[in-house]
């Protein structure tokens, strides 16, 4: 399906550079150039034999030099599914790349694009309501970027103050290991050194 669709897009939307990327595992992907996203989506919604009438997801994935925005389209008429992707170059840490909004094609894009902006800092041009959606309006940074540093303060309030962290829960695994008959069976793999920048602290529990 992907190959034919790529040809169809290329012949109908000039300059879209649709490219089929086959994957060994999972689903195949269709890459297109970012300038033509609106035209490609408009075309796909009414393309003969495909008719992607539902937009499921607009999301992105941050790679250090670029952000790949994925549009997952579904056709409830022909029972099809398509992952449409586009690459956006990210110049520096705070750069917010721009992309055309597809709200005029599917209404569902409104909330999805707002979430994508909120989480990854992709600006959608001509979006009717370009606000953050899950984070507060005055939040700084884009949490789902790989270089995001968790904020320490929000509006003067300390986030995760020391006295509110439940150390007992953090050292729950250690306690289990001490008390277990066979300590090898307890792994608590979630406890990683990178969670503790100043070195893994000693257990605060009294023996």
């Amino acid at each position: 399906m992907h190959n034919e669709l790529a040809q169809l897009i290329n012949s109908n939307v000039s300059g879209s550079n649709a490219e089929h990327v086959a994957r060994e595992n999972g689903d195949d992907v269709l890459f297109i150039s970012s300038e033509h996203i609106l035209r490609v989506c408009t075309f796909l919604k009414s393309a003969q034999g495909y008719e992607f009438n539902v937009l499921q997801v607009v999301t992105g994935c941050d790679y250090t030099d670029r952000i790949e925005v994925s549009y997952i389209l579904a056709s409830f008429i022909n029972n099809l599914e398509l992952i449409l992707k586009t690459k956006l170059l990210k110049e520096n840490k705070d750069h917010t790349p721009e992309l055309e909004s597809v709200c005029s094609v599917w209404e569902a894009a409104n909330y999805q694009e707002r979430e994508c902006f909120d989480m990854l800092g992709v600006c959608f041009k001509n979006h009717p309501d370009p606000r953050r959606i899950l984070c507060p309006d005055d939040w700084e940074g884009y949490p789902l970027r790989k270089d995001y540093v968790p904020a320490e303060k929000y509006n003067g309030m300390v986030i995760n103050p020391e006295h509110k962290i439940n150390r007992e829960e953090i050292f729950f695994g250690e306690k289990l290991k001490r008390e277990a008959v066979d300590p090898k069976k307890i792994s608590y793999s979630w406890k990683k050194p990178e969670y503790f920048p100043d070195g893994v602290p000693e257990s605060t529990e009294s023996e």
Partner: peptide, 10 residues
């Protein structure tokens, strides 16, 4: 370890 790739499952 999940092999390299991507998937969408509904």
């Amino acid at each position: 370890k999940i092999p390299e790739g991507e998937i969408y499952m509904r």
